[in-house]
Every structure is written in C-alpha cells, then in structure tokens.
C-alpha cells in the first residue's frame, strides 16, 4: 500500500498538510483581522534527535499550542508562533501587552483558544480529504524553549517509532510582524490512511 519511494511519501503527506494549513491560516487571519498567507509546506523523515534542529533549533523561545489526536487515527498537531508573534497576537486579542515570561491565566487561555480554532480548522480540512474522523483532545499552550515544547508531542509519537514524519507549513502576514508554523506529526496508522487515500491507489 505504501509507496516505497520516500520522497513520494513526503510529497503526498506534504500535499495533505498543505490543505489543512490553508484552512487554518484563513481562520487565524479572520481572528486577527489580517491577511495570512502560507509558504510552501515542507515535510521530512527525521530521527527524534533531529526534529528541533530542523525547525530552527531547540533553544528558540516560542509559543506552542499542542493537541493530540485521540480517535482511531493518532498523531499530534501543533501551532508554533515566534515569541514576537505571540506578543502581537495576545496584544491584539486582550488589548494589553503580555509579558511572555509570566502569562496570566486569561492570556494562556487566549493562546489555547487560538490554537484550538486553528487546529480544528486544520483537522476539518484534512479529515475530509481522507474521509476519516480526526478527534482532537482539548489543546494546551505554553511559552518556552522549542525543544521543551516538542518533547511531549515527540514522546507520544516516539512510543512506536524512532524516526518521525514531520510536516510544517510556515505562515506569515505582510501587514504585521507575524509568523509561525503548523506542525503535524502523524502516527503510523494515520500515515497509512493518508497514503492509501491520497496516494497511487486513489
């Protein structure tokens, strides 16, 4: 079922993630009242040790919202914002400038909700493509070192595998300093369904 050619697998998963990211970016833009565009989706097969490096280094401070898919098809989805973008976003939504080192309960809640909306729109789009339900757990948000933000998602996927497929789509706005990316970490079974529904067999 699965094409043997690794680059082909990555192409298919990339196309899949692209559609989700497009939907999520539109939702995010509507919330912020700015136009948000996606850049090219990139997809890679990486050992667990290399994921943070591929995303620019474990030591960056980012805002991360993570949800775990908890239905039949499992995986992790994250929205990652640069520190500056998280400040812009929270400022816009709560009308006060946040201190990222010490977010208030309402600010964390706002971040979580933004992630929730984006991630759900992401999943709505991709679940239509593979004609399967994807059920997200309520997400949680934090602002911390990228490596630390990725640990739990990688631990969840890493229970079964030593190398993960990571798909990320950068989004940004031309009107404001605002950028970040969506990150999808599908587990084996989800990957199989994606490849089956979207690959050569279609």
């Amino acid at each position: 079922m699965r094409p043997k050619d690794e680059s082909k697998v990555l192409d298919i998963v990339g196309e899949f993630a692209n559609v989700g990211a497009g939907n999520a970016a539109t939702a995010l833009g509507a919330l912020l009242d700015i136009e948000i565009v996606n850049e090219v989706t990139s997809c890679n097969l990486l050992p667990l040790s290399k994921v943070a490096g591929w995303l620019g280094g474990a030591e960056q401070i980012v805002a991360g919202v993570y949800t775990q898919l908890c239905g039949d098809l499992r995986g992790g989805v994250l929205v990652i914002l640069s520190g500056d973008s998280a400040t812009t976003l929270l400022h816009h939504l709560t009308k006060e400038k946040p201190n990222l080192s010490k977010l208030t309960e309402i600010q964390v809640s706002a971040l979580r909700e933004i992630g929730n909306i984006c991630l759900c729109w992401y999943l709505v789009a991709v679940s239509k493509m593979i004609d399967s339900d994807l059920i997200p757990a309520p997400p949680d948000a934090t602002v911390d070192l990228l490596g630390a933000v990725l640990d739990l998602p990688l631990a969840h996927v890493g229970v079964k595998v030593d190398t993960v497929i990571a798909v990320h789509t950068v989004f940004k706005s031309f009107q404001k300093e605002f950028d970040g990316y969506f990150l999808l970490l599908p587990e084996e079974q989800m990957l199989d369904v994606i490849l089956e529904k979207m690959g050569d067999g279609r």
Binding site: K50, V51, A52, G53, A58, V149, D151, L152, A155
Partner: peptide, 21 residues
C-alpha cells in the same frame, strides 16, 4: 539530542538543549 548519548572526558562540555518532559 533526544534519544542520544555522549560519553567523553575533560575538558569537553556537553549540552542538552530544551529539555521538557
């Protein structure tokens, strides 16, 4: 990095960046 191990001796330094869980 994650799932890696390094063994060495002075005067080297080794670093684990961004430990979460």
């Amino acid at each position: 990095g994650i799932a890696q191990m390094v063994v060495t001796k002075a005067p080297e330094r080794i670093c684990c960046m961004g430990l979460g869980s």
